[in-house]
Nucleic acid binder design. Sequence first.
DNA 1: TTTATTCATCGTAATATTGCAATGAACAAA
DNA 2: TTTGTTCATTGCAATATTACGATGAATAAA
Lengths: 109, 109
Amino acid sequence: MGLAKTEMFTKRQNTISSFAKAFGHPARVAILQHLFKIKACVCGDLVNEIGLAQPTISQHLRELKQLGLIQGNVEGTSVCYCINKENWAKMKGIVSEFLDQDLTCNDCC
Amino acid sequence: MGLAKTEMFTKRQNTISSFAKAFGHPARVAILQHLFKIKACVCGDLVNEIGLAQPTISQHLRELKQLGLIQGNVEGTSVCYCINKENWAKMKGIVSEFLDQDLTCNDCC
DNA sequence: TTTATTCATCGTAATATTGCAATGAACAAA
DNA sequence: TTTGTTCATTGCAATATTACGATGAATAAA
């Protein structure tokens, strides 16, 4: 019914999918790549850079922020967003462990 | 409008988000983990293992198959699904490159 | 104080995703 | 052939996501 039955899965499985969902939209991929590139940012730059409306960018930023992958520091009228290094590293560890699973396989395939 | 404006983004950005979307649901994470674990599988096993209805599992399998991450070989009345090692490795390379971006940052944050 | 700038939030419309009952297709066994 | 097994597909209902105009809150500048 459009509702992910999260209670059926392990905490780890839900964590992995939550992080993956964060990268599951090209706008958020682009936002993160831009933050990595310039190493600091304000929302207005992203609106020009990405090409989506300001509320849309703001909404994507909020999702990334709620997951802890970015942080925003208010500076006057603008907000300085950047990658949260510590949480990014944690996420990378969890996702990488999933991606790095053993590929050995029996004769079935 | 619920429509990702893929044409605004680079091919690479869309590729990353497509793969990420595949892991963006705990059921698909669980399916892949199970395939890794037993190294071969049929759909019926997954229905018992995961706990979702058979059509639901079949639908998730189709998405993973369309992305090339798994493959299914028909064996009599059952279908043997397993990880597509080559494509998994390719995907891992693309996603890892994104995750491994340089975390150095200026004094802004 | 007034005005401008910047970003967040609200409200809403459109599309996407998830889940499953019902059904179908393919094959094997009786 | 008939029956049973296995998985795919269809059709639908419910929820989630995406996008943006309008508006609000906060601050800075005039």
